[in-house]
């Protein structure tokens, strides 16, 4: 059975590929997960693959996976919410570590228990075989190279921009982009890899960010540049005055808005040109 399993309209791996990935994941000793949470993962993946995503609710998980009875009330008995957090954390740790080379990745985005399946961003060579044709594939999203122009000569701006970059990393990866950061000169291997990307950009974009400390506040700005054409695709900025100096949550919100803006723009662009970006 092939189809779209996630709500975001992205092209998905085939059912067989997902189920094989699930079996591989469940059999892995490297996945730090209780037996109960392995059943949780298995339940939501199988429901999604079988086209029963609407059944994936706290109530059905509580009853079918955690053995609660009909009176199960997730507000008094938050077992599903807690275990979902631990499951997400375990999956992230697995794919960041021993499962780094897995072709198909299973994740459960926050705010939902419906799993999302994507082709590994590091398995481009196998992706065409594993993905079915569709509107836009998670495995086809552009590479974003973050280039931070803030830090030199201004340690405070450097610290603030580090916070902004951290938040962007999380949110851009949630939008399924491949993300790289232009490294310091002493990391020559990484720098060479990115210079090669600049020389032959393909679908890559540069996200140039700057944080400036002003007399009366701070200004966070970014520009998205198509590395193939140098065209500035979009840009934005936000300034905060000193009394409302941004806390991590506000910077996180700005990063999330930035990632969504970039994602929407690249998706629209990709549709308008009928190709990939």
């Amino acid at each position: 059975m092939d189809g779209i399993y996630s709500a975001n309209g992205q092209r998905q791996p085939s059912s067989d590929a997902v189920l094989t990935a699930l079996q591989s994941l469940l059999a892995s000793d490297s996945l730090r997960l209780s037996e109960r949470n392995r059943r949780f993962l298995s339940f939501v993946v199988k429901q999604a693959v079988e086209g029963q995503a609407e059944r994936i609710k706290a109530y059905s998980i509580g009853v079918d996976v955690f053995g609660r009875d009909d009176s199960f009330d997730p507000t008094l008995d938050p077992i599903v919410r807690i275990e979902a957090t631990r499951l997400r954390s375990a999956l992230t740790a697995y794919y960041d570590g021993p499962g780094r080379s897995e072709n198909i990745r299973i994740s459960i985005p926050r705010g939902s228990y419906i799993p999302v399946f994507s082709c590994s961003l590091q398995a481009q060579g196998n992706a065409d075989e594993l993905c079915r044709t569709g509107q836009s594939a998670a495995c086809d999203r552009a590479t974003i190279v973050i280039h931070d122009h803030s830090g030199e000569g201004d340690p405070e701006a450097g610290l603030k921009s580090e916070l902004f970059v951290d938040a962007l990393l999380v949110t851009l990866r949630q939008e399924r982009f491949r993300v790289r950061i232009l490294p310091a000169n002493d990391r020559s291997a990484a720098l060479s890899a990115i210079n090669a990307l600049f020389a032959n950009p393909g679908t890559a974009c540069s996200l140039d960010i700057t944080v400036r400390i002003l007399n009366d506040g701070q200004r966070y700005s970014w520009r998205l540049v198509d590395l193939a054409t140098s065209e500035v695709l979009t840009s934005n900025f936000q300034a905060w005055t000193t009394p409302t100096t941004p806390c991590p949550a506000i910077v996180g919100d700005f990063a999330a808005t930035t990632a969504r803006t970039i994602s929407d723009l690249l998706r629209a662009r990709e549709h308008s040109v009928g190709g990939r970006l």
Partner: peptide, 19 residues
């Protein structure tokens, strides 16, 4: 508390203790 890696686990821990 909002650490991207740990914030949700802090919350889950608190929920489990409260429950």
């Amino acid at each position: 508390p909002d650490d991207p890696r740990l914030g949700d686990l802090f919350e889950a821990y608190e929920l489990a203790c409260e429950a």
